[in-house]
Amino acid sequence: MSQPPVIELQNVCTSFRGKAVHKDLSLRVEEGQIVGLLGGSGSGKTTLLREILGLLKPSSGSVRLFGTDLNDPDVILQRNLRRRLGMLFQHGALFSALSVFDNIAFPLRELRCLDADWIRRLVHLKLAMVGLDATHGKLMPAELSGGMVKRVALARALALEPELLLLDEPTAGLDPDRSQNFVELVGDLQRELGLTVVMVTHDLNTLAGLASHVAVLADQHIIAFGPKAEVMTVDHPFVTGFFGADRRKLL
């Protein structure tokens, strides 16, 4: 049985006010891969994530998730597609008017199928997974520290048990201990559920601990994509700069 790739971008071109961000960008992510997306600042990593999410329409080219085109006009199909993915935004993007508990419960309540007890157990489970106490559930997002915001946001992204998880700078702003926990958590989830993960990160430890594949975004397209060890040997100024000789020891 051949599965369609989880993410398939074909010849995607994007430009903002005449300035090209992506040119003929193609990427194919298969089920179960954990892809680290690398690139210099301003190289369009977040733009690429937004295109995968369907928040931004590329000027040309197609984006397919689970074999479904994001431009499909079927609203129900689109909604069901969105439920299969979870996104962790760079700055958390928690609903500031809702408490931590309600933030995580929100996508579950939107399903309109689960009863209150089930939702409460699930929310507390997610809170425990990201290392937060049940008492934190009552706090408002404004009362949280930066690292806690990130963990709550991850719990919310995981609430619907997504098959595809998109992470934008997941460990930035976490202390090393927490980011190690984070790496272990996502790794566990990946093994248990066969998650596919795409993450933008600059943190070598996260990349080393988690990613199975690496995609390098430079010169407006993916210059290298493949297993971690292969990509490191690519001869490109960005790659050699990023995995400098002494840093290579880390991985």
Partner: peptide, 22 residues
């Protein structure tokens, strides 16, 4: 082993859960 892990995680939750209602 994997389903058992998931179940263990649920089992470890405290039985009494504070209600979130104000």
């Amino acid at each position: 082993e994997l389903p058992r892990q998931v179940l263990t995680r649920v089992a470890e939750l405290p039985r009494e859960m504070p209600d979130s209602a104000r």
